[in-house]
């Protein structure tokens, strides 16, 4: 899904934008949830309730208790600690994949918008080709060809972010180019590259930010799916998808194990989506009334 509001420049400046953002319930809820998840990932570097590399055979598949809030897995590892450490993997994969998508897609989209003509056609057709591949299928194919693992999962997810950002950047830039201040810049003798960098990019930055949160959320879901089928991060590195796979085979004995990693994924994705909704509301008050 791509997000294209009718107007995406906060016309009344940053402080008014922030005021509107803080008035948006979606933004506040999304910001708090996202911040908490990020905090959890950071804390996991210094402290977890238990050591995730410690296998305690005697403590296998315990139900949630005071000692192990979320219970333990089939190796006796503390599930809460594994979820904390696993968040690093999810966030890193999704974040770098967004970075790849933005890093390659935004220049492509801006170039297409600035030059137009055959180059524009070429970029758009390239997008069509990538979009013709069902993303998940190709991610499976890529990780299968180049081997499973977190790095290849990043590449597989990142490739599909490229056309998304190219499309959003192009659409945004195309709406900026006919504006008067661009004409003024051209009259002042600035070249297309300089105009793109100095005038177009800052004006579509918020638009890209909203799409970024959407792709971030989708990346978390995709990474979880890939790890679930064994193509993402490899054990012993904890990952949410892998934890769900392990839990599935033991669902009869320890049903709660399948609960917490799934909740972690859902809450993270929910937080990011709310954040994105909140930012777009604040950018475009007209749109909010429609929501």
């Amino acid at each position: 899904m791509t997000y294209l509001p009718s107007a995406f420049i906060p016309r009344d400046g940053l402080s008014a934008f922030l005021a509107r953002a803080l008035a948006s319930r979606s933004f506040i809820a999304g910001f708090i949830v996202t911040a908490l998840i990020a905090l959890m990932a950071l804390v996991s570097f210094f402290w977890t309730p238990d050591d995730v590399t410690k296998l305690v055979v005697g403590d296998r598949m315990l139900a949630p208790s005071a000692a192990h809030w979320f219970g333990t897995d089939h190796f006796g590892r503390d599930v809460l600690s594994m979820i904390m450490v696993g968040s690093r993997n999810s966030i890193a994969v999704a974040l770098v994949a967004v970075g790849i998508g933005m890093g390659l897609g935004v220049p492509l989209g801006c170039l297409a918008a600035a030059r137009g003509g055959w180059l524009d056609d070429f970029v758009m057709r390239f997008n069509d080709v990538v979009f013709a591949f069902p993303a998940l299928l190709s991610a499976v194919m890529i990780t299968a060809v180049f081997g499973p693992g977190a790095v290849n999962a990043i590449i597989a997810i990142g490739i599909f972010n490229i056309p998304v950002f190219a499309r959003v950047a192009r659409a945004g830039a195309l709406a900026i180019w006919p504006r008067e201040f661009i004409l003024a810049a051209r009259a002042a003798g600035k070249g297309k590259t300089r105009i793109t960098l100095e005038h177009v990019l800052p004006n579509i930055a918020t638009l890209l930010l909203v799409q970024g949160t959407i792709q971030f959320a989708l990346g978390i879901l995709a990474e979880a799916g890939l790890s679930y089928v064994g193509l993402g991060a490899q054990p012993p590195m904890p990952s949410w998808g892998r934890m769900l796979f392990d839990a599935q085979t033991r669902m009869m004995v320890a049903p709660t194990q399948a609960l917490f990693p799934g909740l972690a994924i859902m809450i993270t994705v929910l937080g990011l989506n709310l954040l994105g909704d909140g930012v777009s509301d604040a950018l475009d008050p007209k749109l909010r009334r429609r929501r």
Partner: peptide, 22 residues
């Protein structure tokens, strides 16, 4: 709908299996 978008479908599948099959 917000919840529906955020739920990974394979996790939802696991919950369904647990509820309706197990």
């Amino acid at each position: 709908a917000q919840l529906g978008v955020a739920i990974p479908n394979f996790w939802f599948a696991l919950l369904l299996i647990y509820l309706f099959a197990v």
